[in-house]
Design a binder for these strands. Structure first.
Lengths: 229, 229
DNA sequence: CCCAATTGGCTTAGTATTGGATTTAAAAGA
DNA sequence: TCTTTTAAATCCAATACTAAGCCAATTGGG
């Protein structure tokens, strides 16, 4: 199938190329594509082929074709953001945190300053005093993970984590917290948070990352257990 | 030699240019744009075309047009959510990718289906044929990392990666790409991409993650090297 | 306070560009 | 061979752009 690469360039291939540029943001919303005749020239195909490709993209609502005017990008990758965040499922969230937070711990070890550590210590104490107050624990927990991100001094990571945290403050999630956050679980989490904090203050990046992984593993376990009941 | 028939520069193009300058902060809030007649001269179009472009921007609330006075920027990028993304610095981006992409590789190993692998293979071939075409390489490279994210089936991760990719399509970055992406570097990246792909097809999560880390390490090196020159 | 200069608002007629659609021929694939 | 797809060349219809002029609102200097 892919052996004969050179000869056959069909409308499907053209469509894929353009689709990729739109979805990756290389072509921004409202932007006008070059005229069909020029695209045909660029891709070295006939105009009819380009036309077919553009019509496919129009059916996918990626572009809008206006006769006499041009073809315009109508897909905004950043607009689908709210939907993604609102509809994120618990296990998706845990996987995303698995990707992010261990490495955040490593970076936190590199960048942590005394007042970062003080803030973490203060939040740890709040959580340790909230064994019977799930709501309080939960807000301090979120803050703790935010501080970890802020400690990296990486605005991109800080922003990503804040986006992820906004998922957790959804309505549906607070229900779930009430089920999961019993005193035993809170105690477990407190121990794990403490382990992460200790690893960071002792400047041990891999230990910090490993502790975070263990913590997230527990969180995943809590989730699957609560889902099965 | 005048075979090059310029494609029409229309109101959509003018609007895109000005919109980009506004959103990137090149034009500050409250600042007055040059008069329509001057803009028309600068862009080498008729005044009516400039007018249409400005009216579009006014509908998007990016500018305010006051008859007899002028056209004023009414959009403040620092108050926009996209701000973090627009102002992300190269090393921040690499750190974020260090956090995300190795784990994405692990998840990709778990979820990869035959047509995911086919798509990766096709992009690898595109990149391998683009040793002397940085723009094409870059677009396929972005797509490759996007496909990795899509393979996880995790919408949250897919969205995060797409946000990160949108950073890379910024103006400043395309300059940097031209400096970094010489044939040697592209060949190196191609080898590394191939290694990642092989690890995924052979279902070796840790090998895939390690290959990705190596790839990102190279990317970081290219960045620091280009920054120091 | 008024006048003159500047700036956006708007109209018109003529021209150019662009997508829409059809036809014929050639090439690729079943 | 027959079917489908692509190429190439037209012509058409919709839309946008140019150019030029005049009006209306605003601004700032005298």
């Amino acid at each position: 199938m892919n052996e004969t690469k050179r000869t056959r360039v069909g409308s499907a291939e053209i469509a894929s190329l353009i689709r990729r540029d739109i979805k990756s943001g290389e072509l921004s919303p409202k932007e006008r594509l070059p005229p069909e005749r020029v695209l045909a020239e660029n891709y070295q195909v006939a105009r009819g082929t380009v036309r077919e490709a553009l019509n496919k993209l129009a059916e996918e609502s990626l572009v809008e074709i206006r006769a006499g005017s041009g073809t315009y990008v109508t897909f905004d990758p950043s607009e689908s953001a709210d939907n993604v965040i609102l509809s994120a499922r618990p296990l998706e969230l845990i996987d995303a945190r698995f990707a992010l937070e261990p490495h955040i711990c490593r970076l936190a070890v590199l960048h942590a300053r005394p007042n970062d550590l003080e803030e973490m210590e203060s939040l740890l104490q709040t959580m340790e005093n909230s064994v019977n107050d799930p709501a309080m624990f939960s807000s301090a927990d979120t803050a703790f993970h935010s501080v970890l991100a802020e400690t990296t001094n990486n605005n991109l990571l800080i922003w990503i984590v804040s986006q992820i945290n906004s998922v957790r403050s959804q309505k549906e999630w607070s229900k779930m917290r009430r089920v999961i956050l019993n005193p035993d679980t809170i105690n477990l989490y407190n121990q794990q948070h403490r382990a992460i904090f200790t690893a960071i203050s002792q400047r041990e990046p891999e230990l910090a990352a490993a502790s975070m992984k263990e913590h997230l593993e527990s969180a995943r376990l809590s989730l699957t257990r609560s889902a099965s009941t």
